[in-house]
């Protein structure tokens, strides 16, 4: 019962971060600021959702896999954010005006 409550709390917190990422995407004036807000928000959102789900998994194997997905998602999102930032930078310097 306590685990369930903890789970719900973490899931709600995760939802909060997803919604704030959405707001950042919608309201922030500058693209770099949006990138910053978004990457932080959705990483945390996914992380919290996963932690919340960890209390609901049927066995240890599931939990291991969940943590694996989380770690990979962290690596992937760091690389993604880097690639997008470089792309943005290049565009703003006018190397690639077709974008």
């Amino acid at each position: 019962m306590i685990l369930d409550a903890l789970s719900v709390l973490l899931l709600l917190l995760g939802l909060f971060f997803f919604v704030s990422g959405l707001l950042g995407l919608w309201r922030f004036p500058d693209t770099f600021a949006r990138l910053h807000a978004l990457t932080k928000a959705d990483n945390l959102g996914l992380g919290l959702v996963m932690t919340g789900l960890l209390f609901q998994v049927p066995d240890v194997l599931w939990a291991i896999k969940f943590i694996l997905v989380w770690l990979l998602a962290l690596v992937a999102s760091a690389v993604n954010a880097h690639l997008i930032a470089v792309f943005l930078h290049r565009q703003q310097e006018g190397h690639d005006e077709s974008a």
């Binding site: 959405l22 995407l25 693209t31 949006r34 990138l35 996914l46 789900l53 609901q56 993604n80």
Partner: peptide
Amino acid sequence: LTDRLLAVQLLGTLGVAILLMLAV
């Protein structure tokens, strides 16, 4: 274009989150 790229990233993360929830 770049704003859309960011939105795609958010969509991707949301998709993964939904998939994990559905798994449970």
